[in-house]
Design a protein around this nucleic acid. Structure first.
Lengths: 150, 150
DNA sequence: CTTGTAATGAGAATCATTCTCGTTTAGAGT
DNA sequence: ACTCTAAACGAGAATGATTCTCATTACAAG
């Protein structure tokens, strides 16, 4: 799966809006995240970009987050995980393996989204919050960990 | 709000099952979490237990997690947050403030739970995962941060 | 009362992440 | 193409949450 060309254009545009350049390192990061189609940790990103220094990975992921291109996802283990913002990758949810920590994307269903929107509205009213988003994560055991468990 | 007596009994029982004692430090931790009614970070726990050493807080929270009494929740900032397991505190969801990081408990609605259960079933079938639980977090801005923003 | 095992707490160690800083590069203007 | 300025780079140090180490203490059973 190759990233759609428009993704790179949008990223360049957003970075420009923050007076930041769309450098080769950043292009590589965006391409890696677009290809993966699931949130990646920094070690996972480094594993697919052998030449990339750790400090550059962290610094540029932060830059991309500031530009609104990338979003940080907190999974079940200690590693932060990163994915393209929903405007670029589409709205979706996550399925995390509680044993190995791997995270997959899950497509949203209309019924679930409706129920969540209603929940957000109710909570906003009851607690006085301004609700800006939601996160729905399923936790389970992935096929390969199920096999390992026996 | 005082913790129901049965909570302490259940905790003692579960710890015993792991050959661990329900010591004063652990009682204090459970009482603190039960009183709070929302996930607390270690600094928050220490703030309400001035005599408690940091290393004991971390060690005993870990013990309680291993005994299935406490659950770790990852919020919007760097601090891990801890709450009583759902068997003790009841099933619920979270509402996190994206600015100050505070996390509140939110009661589940039947309709939302039904939609989530269906989503879990579909995903389990499609991806081959064994789904063991879910997490639904709303993100927003809490009343006091809304005021501060102006 | 002894004895084995769990728990304690102070400090060191670990590990993800962020910062520092001297060097390099991209892009606008000449 | 040449220069200039600010952004970006990368290696390593620094930070900060969390975990580990270890000598000491407290509990439970015999």
């Amino acid at each position: 799966m190759i990233a759609a060309p428009s993704v790179h254009e949008q990223v360049a545009l957003r970075l420009a809006g923050h007076e930041q350049r769309y450098t080769p390192v950043r292009q590589a990061l965006v391409a890696t995240l677009a290809d993966a189609g699931r949130p990646l940790s920094i070690p996972e990103i480094l594993a697919t970009n052998l030449e990339l220094p750790q400090s550059s990975a962290y610094r540029n992921v932060t830059s991309l987050i500031e530009a609104g291109v990338v979003r940080r996802v907190t999974g079940v283990d200690d590693h932060g995980r990163f994915e393209l913002a929903e405007e670029l990758a589409g709205h979706h949810h996550h399925l995390a393996c509680g044993q190995c920590g791997k995270v997959e994307d899950v497509a949203p269903s209309a019924r679930l989204e409706r129920a969540m929107a209603e929940a957000a509205r109710v909570v906003a009213e009851e607690q006085g919050y301004e609700v800006t988003g939601h996160q729905f994560d399923l936790v389970g055991v992935c096929p390969s960990c199920r096999r390992a468990d026996g």
